[in-house]
Write a protein that binds this DNA or RNA. Sequence first.
DNA 1: CTAGGTGCAAAAGGTTTGCGGTTAA
DNA 2: TTAACCGCAAACCTTTTGCACCTAG
Lengths: 143, 143
Amino acid sequence: MRTSWEQKLDQTLTKVGLRSTSQRQIVYSVLLDVRDHPTAETVFLRAKQAVPEISMATVYNCLDALVKCGLVTQVNIHRAATRFCPNMQEHGHFYCDECGKVFDISMASPAGMINIPSGFEPLQYEVSISGRCADCRDWEIPG
Amino acid sequence: MRTSWEQKLDQTLTKVGLRSTSQRQIVYSVLLDVRDHPTAETVFLRAKQAVPEISMATVYNCLDALVKCGLVTQVNIHRAATRFCPNMQEHGHFYCDECGKVFDISMASPAGMINIPSGFEPLQYEVSISGRCADCRDWEIPG
DNA sequence: CTAGGTGCAAAAGGTTTGCGGTTAA
DNA sequence: TTAACCGCAAACCTTTTGCACCTAG
């Protein structure tokens, strides 16, 4: 029996004119399975466990398709590999400079507090915070 | 006579233990001169007009030094070259997907509206908006 | 004097592309 | 049937690194 996320994936891909393929299903399931904002490389390695012959190019293609159809968000990290996140609620990201982990941060819509100049058409907002996560702060060696 | 920004640069670099060099002065002056959020490559080409023998590695080093001492901000753009901005007021950035230009966007401090989990230590906020700028919207072919 | 900076060239890292073969619709 | 997709490998672009020489403090 098809699970509900598989149906939703099929429908969402089809809606924007993209095909539903087994590779795209695997990639999406990998993202849903462990919500740790993996890089394309990590997604590749995890997907490979299910489909050993899958290629990096295909993983990029699949991630791209998922972003295009609105099921996945990209998280940009300065000069490091892009992370991928299947949480489509409006939220920000906290990047820990020390351990490299990425955390979802709940927030109000930023649209209200930002003064978009007239004539500009905003399509996407991205709020990212960098610093040190709780764990890394705890492990700090005192003075 | 030394201009005030040159003195400020010297002092600010020195304060964090970095040296004031002619290359760093040139790079900073390039950023102050045209406020169009240039890439490292563009900074390199502009700096080269004053110092033909300057190298890309040095431009990166100088930009890095300027960021470290707090005179310059980096603007991350998804999968494209980092842009550099000498405007140190708290502000966001609008990236036009069509023409690639970057615009400063005034905004209230995002710190208030974001719910940082306890124990997390935020160091830097970055708000970026992507979409279409006014010019690109105007030039759109109707129908 | 010497730690830090510069210039060059080579390498790294992440992502994209070209192409022949495959497959969903 | 056929446009879209896959897998592979090579290319690409931005950034980093190693090293010999140079220079600010």
